[in-house]
């Protein structure tokens, strides 16, 4: 499991740019940034090299930011990489809240999955690992 930083942003001009600038000034490198948007606001989910510092910097700058545990699974960067993982989860009857992917290096991709509830999440993570997938740790993506 790794730490994802989740930030609440209003849908208004320049807010995302300001958020990224704040992280840039603090010399924090993002591996991934995805936005879930609604009419009035967006929820920005960030994977970065130093989540604790990112959280501190954003909180100090008056952003509403929280840290969330998510499962990060390394899959081969090739057609069917994600499909095989999801098939396994389906087999395990495991619901996921949301997910997204980013590539780590040329031949590896990282699939991030949010499974609700701390107990369900760690049970699911173990099941994924037992099925032969590689669970990534914070240092794997730093």
């Amino acid at each position: 499991m790794i730490d994802q930083i989740t930030v609440f942003l209003e849908n208004s001009e320049g807010r995302l740019a300001a958020l990224c600038r704040t992280l840039a000034w603090a010399n924090i490198n993002m591996r991934s940034l995805v936005i879930a948007d609604t009419t009035d606001y967006g929820v920005v989910r960030i994977i970065c090299d130093d989540p604790q510092r990112a959280l501190d910097v954003l909180t100090a700058a008056d952003y509403r930011a929280i840290s969330t545990k998510v499962a990060a699974i390394g899959v081969p960067n090739e057609p069917g990489g994600l499909a095989r993982l999801l098939a396994k989860l389906d087999e395990l009857d495991q619901n996921i809240e949301y997910g997204y992917c980013f590539s780590l290096s040329g031949d590896m991709a990282c699939d991030v999955l949010k499974i609700s509830g701390a107990e369900e999440a760690s049970a699911a993570a173990k099941a994924i690992e037992d099925a032969g997938f590689k669970l990534l740790k914070q240092e794997d993506i730093a």
Binding site: A36, R64, I66, Y98
Partner: peptide, 15 residues
Amino acid sequence: VEMEQGFDFDEIRQI
């Protein structure tokens, strides 16, 4: 309104 610090809003359905 503003959310109180510590409220877990990671899943949009919470908001």
